[in-house]
Computed example of a mutant assay.
Amino acid sequence: MSIADLRKDYSRASLTEADVDPDPVRQFSVWFRQALDAGIPEANAMSVATVGADNRPSSRILLIKDVDADGFTWFTNYASRKGRELAIHPHAALLFHWVELERQVRIEGRVEKLPDAQSDAYFQSRPLKSRLGALASAQSEPIASRDALERQYADTEAEYGDHPVRPSHWGGYRLVPDRVEFWQGRPSRLHDRILYTRQEDGAWRRERLQP
């Protein structure tokens, strides 16, 4: 079978304007809870797409760490490629794909750094080895070998022991959404797509998109 022959018909559910909450963040929380209840592996995994100084996009998988009325939060190295790109173009696109539920959620908006106190609190909540790893790795920078990386980690562990502190180059981001699209797979490729767009007064407009 060729790649072009790979296809699936979607029939698990439907999505109408009457089904969704007027607020897309609350609607996301409903779908996210359903993904967790369905036992989907790493339901908190999302693609984060950014744009660099050369205007070329790049994307990677990260784990979301919080969702509230203010937006969608994750943590990373500010000096990484994504961090450097966000410093130039402070907008990003998130994508959640819960294949078992035949659903996607696309989220776009402005990205801002979290306050230091919030990043400090989350850093201290992480497992010790994860905290040491954040200190040991100059994320996205070249390194000669795996052995060299292991030595960096060992040196960091020897220096900080059980009390690593959050480095200034590591912390949280929040995406403040202005577009959120909910996609539900349907038969015959006539998928349901409901788009929310934030208006100038902060209200959300809902509309159905053709698949």
Results as ranks from 00 to 15, higher is better:
Arg56Val: 12
Pro57Leu: 07
Ser58Cys: 07
Ser59Trp: 04
Arg60Pro: 00
Arg60Asn: 05
Ile61Glu: 11
Ile61Tyr: 09
Leu63Trp: 01
Leu63Asp: 09
Ile64Trp: 06
Ile64Cys: 08
Asp66Tyr: 03
Ala69Glu: 15
Ala69Thr: 12
Ala69Gln: 15
Ala69Pro: 02
Ala69Cys: 08
Gly71Phe: 00
Phe72Asp: 00
Thr73Gln: 12
Phe75Asn: 05
Thr76Lys: 06
Tyr78Arg: 09
Ala79His: 14
Ser80Glu: 07
Arg81Thr: 13
Lys82Ile: 05
Gly83Val: 11
Arg84Leu: 12
Glu85Phe: 01
Ala87Glu: 15
Ile88Asn: 07
Ile88Gly: 03
Ile88Ser: 07
Ile88His: 15
Pro90Arg: 14
His91Arg: 14
Ala92Ile: 01
Leu94Ala: 11
Leu95Ala: 14
Leu95Phe: 06
His97Thr: 10
His97Asp: 06
His97Trp: 14
Trp98His: 11
Val99Cys: 12
Val99Trp: 08
Glu100Ala: 15
Leu101Gly: 04
Glu102Cys: 02
Arg103Trp: 09
Gln104Leu: 04
Arg106Leu: 06
Arg106Ser: 08
Arg106Glu: 02
Ile107Thr: 02
Gly109Val: 02
Gly109Glu: 01
Arg110Trp: 04
Arg110Gln: 11
Val111Glu: 02
Val111Ala: 05
Glu112Trp: 05
Lys113Trp: 02
Lys113Leu: 08
Leu114Asn: 03
Leu114His: 01
Leu114Gly: 02
Pro115Ala: 08
Asp116Arg: 10
Asp116His: 08
Ala117Thr: 10
Gln118Val: 09
Ser119Leu: 05
Ser119Asp: 12
Ser119Asn: 09
Asp120Ala: 04
Ala121Glu: 15
Ala121Trp: 10
Tyr122Asp: 14
Tyr122Gly: 12
Tyr122Lys: 03
Phe123Tyr: 15
Gln124Asp: 14
Gln124Met: 11
Ser125Gly: 14
Ser125Asn: 12
Lys129Phe: 08
Lys129Val: 06
Lys129Met: 13
Arg131Leu: 01
Leu132Gly: 09
Leu132Lys: 03
Leu132Ile: 07
Gly133Ala: 14
Gly133Leu: 04
Ala134Tyr: 00
Leu135Ser: 11
Ser137Thr: 13
Ser137Phe: 10
